[in-house]
């Protein structure tokens, strides 16, 4: 089976500033990768480049063994962008309508919604525990509820890869922990590969299986076990920080 994500020698620039330099890594089926790093380290740029949303200057990106430029099987990928609820608060769409949008990637033109689709929407809403909200306007929900709905939107096609960009930034700690355990469940039960961007390196250890530490270049990529025993990382982060990340694992 080809790797889910295969990045070779990726460079990204905004004008003259190098945002990402020489990034190479592979994500295998079923991996749960936490992408961490300081602010401005290029985390969002990386995932946006993976999806073709921001341009790259050099390098190759493969998704499920297909070069990004030729990739069309978008229903394999669910994406939850950063700060998303800020844009949707005034948008006139019910929960059902938002989740329905997630189905479009699995369809060819002319896209029509069937009875089976409606059943899938109901299933995913139930799985996310937001079935009672289906007729509410998305903007009226709490931050945690909105994130669940948007995750439902990303997952309604049962994608093999889920990419989430700081999904918990606006959530209180308790809701955040519930959200993380939901993701862990998805990864475990559905064997969905997860790529999770977070600034929250302390909690990531409790759920992710691999760690990708980014600081405009790839500082570390590997399993948590490898991270915790790496003396290079001890030198890089200091013993305390390394311990803090590894503590929860």
């Amino acid at each position: 089976m080809p790797p889910v994500i295969d990045v070779k020698g990726l460079y990204c620039r905004y004008g003259a500033t190098h945002v990402l330099s020489d990034i190479t890594f592979r994500v295998e089926d079923g991996d749960y990768v936490g992408i961490v790093g300081p602010n401005g380290s290029g985390k969002s740029t990386l995932v946006r480049a993976l999806l073709g949303l921001s341009s790259r200057d050099e390098g190759e990106i493969g998704l499920f063994g297909v070069p990004l430029s030729e990739f069309e099987d978008w229903q394999q990928i669910g994406y939850l962008p950063q700060h998303f609820n800020l844009f949707t608060s005034n948008f006139p769409a019910t929960v059902t309508e938002v989740v329905r949008l997630g189905l479009l990637s699995g369809k060819r033109f002319p896209r029509r919604i069937s009875r089976a689709d409606t059943a899938r929407i109901d299933d995913i809403l139930e799985y996310m525990g937001v079935q009672d909200l289906r007729r509410r306007r998305i903007g009226q929900l709490s931050g945690g509820q909105q994130q669940r709905v948007l995750l439902a939107r990303a997952m309604v096609n049962q994608p093999r890869l889920l990419i989430l960009d700081e999904p918990t930034a606006a959530l209180d700690p308790e809701t955040r922990d519930r959200f993380y355990s939901l993701l862990a469940e998805v990864n475990r039960e559905r064997n969905t590969t997860i790529l999770l961007v977070t600034h929250d390196s302390a909690t990531i250890g409790s759920c992710a299986s691999k760690l990708l530490y980014l600081d405009k270049r790839l500082v570390f990529y590997g399993t948590f076990r490898e991270f915790c025993v790496s003396s290079a990382m001890t030198n890089h982060f200091g013993e305390l920080a390394q311990h803090q990340i590894c503590r929860l694992h």
């Binding site: 978008w74 990928i77 949008l101």
Partner: peptide, 19 residues
């Protein structure tokens, strides 16, 4: 209809839905 709603909701999400 669905395509129009999708690009109005979020253009990038619409793009990676193959629209």
């Amino acid at each position: 209809y669905h395509e129009l709603v999708a690009i109005t909701f979020n253009e990038e999400l619409a793009r990676i839905s193959g629209i």
